[in-house]
Design a protein around this nucleic acid. Structure first.
Length: 324
DNA sequence: TACACTGACCGCCATA
DNA sequence: ATTATGGCGGTCAGTG
């Protein structure tokens, strides 16, 4: 048994901050602990003065004083976001800012979720860096921090030790990427699967599998395409046909698709098909039928793809749902 | 295992 | 000068 390197996630919060920014990343790392049954990550919520901190939804969290923590290479420290007013208050707080400066010097990873990036900017940590920002806050960000670059299309951006994510849900994507960096893609996949399963139960399936879809911003044509694809998961639709559907040349279609969705079209469609298959398996459909319904030529191709995506074999996944 | 074939991806480049 | 477009073809993974 190899020695496990224990890591720590520290979330920096403050009055009236966004609770979801705290719970999203926490959910990912705590799911990693649960899935492996190992204590891979400690999770700590800290604030400038410690004690009870009220968040924007009214829920209060008990926090540790930031100054009581010592940061090192095993730490991931994320500053959470907030609405305009509490955000501005936090940006003006000198104690908070000097603590964050220390963090940036010492933590193995540091960064922000959603509008938390403004606080990093206020500390002066973003000169010559590239960050992700929420689309609604982008112009404001550019005005305030002229020496920072922002990538409007990215869900999250990682530059050396700095990690920034564009919104609440993308904070989850970002922490999944950190998890993959720490412990490999297999664990990342099964944690992602766990989170999907939970949200599936809660009735948020579409939003969640829409994580990828929701990235597509402007192009209404692409929205139509995605609907079409989603309704056609049982058919084999080639990239060329997709291009035709949106009246683009195959080459331009490919390029613009990648720009919008962060992945190539065939890969995206395969994910849709696998999600469809996963739902079917959850409804006790046989593996062979699920493979066919999801447009896979052979059962073995399906097995390979399913395992790669979700980290378990279709058979095992189906059984785990049958015993509920 | 060897092999040919196909489709997807994407760098490159001429062109609009 | 800068940028988007779209065709070409090399590479690669998957399939029979």
């Amino acid at each position: 048994m190899p020695m496990i390197e224990k890591r720590r996630l520290v979330l920096i919060t403050y009055n009236e901050a966004e609770l979801l920014d705290v719970t999203g990343p926490s959910a990912v790392f705590s799911a990693a602990n649960r899935v492996t049954d190992l204590a891979l990550y400690d999770i700590v919520v800290a604030s400038p003065c410690g004690g009870v901190v009220r968040h924007s939804c009214g829920i209060e969290l008990v926090t540790v004083p930031l100054a009581s923590l010592v940061f090192g290479a095993h730490d991931t420290v994320l500053v959470v976001g907030a609405d305009t007013r509490p955000l501005a208050a936090a940006m003006a707080e000198t104690g908070l800012k000097s603590s964050i400066r220390t963090v940036a010097q010492n933590a193995g990873r540091y960064g922000s979720v959603c509008t938390g990036v403004f606080i990093l900017g206020a500390v002066g940590l973003l000169d010559d860096k590239t960050v992700a920002t929420h689309w609604a806050a982008e112009s404001q960000f550019r005005r305030l921090f002229k020496n920072a670059r922002c990538d409007a299309d990215a869900m999250y951006v990682n530059e050396e030790r700095l990690w920034t994510s564009a919104g609440v849900t993308t904070g989850i994507d970002m922490t999944l990427a950190m998890l993959e960096r720490d412990h490999g893609s297999a664990l990342k996949a099964s944690v992602a699967r766990q989170l999907v399963v939970y949200s599936h139960r809660a009735g948020y399936q579409s939003q969640f599998s829409g994580l990828l879809i929701a990235q597509g911003k402007e192009d209404a044509r692409f929205a139509g395409l995605v609907n079409w694809l989603q309704a056609s998961t049982a058919r084999a639709i080639s990239v060329e046909q997709m291009a035709e559907h949106v009246s683009m040349s195959p080459r331009s279609f490919h390029r613009r698709f990648v720009k919008n969705f962060g992945q190539p079209p065939a890969k995206f469609f395969e994910t849709l098909r696998l999600n469809a298959a996963r739902s079917l398996l959850g409804a006790h459909v046989t593996v062979a039928d699920a493979a066919r319904e999801a447009g896979f030529r052979s059962e073995s191709a399906f097995r390979t793809a399913f395992k790669a995506q979700f980290g378990v074999t279709p058979q095992l996944y189906r059984q785990s749902w049958q015993s509920r």
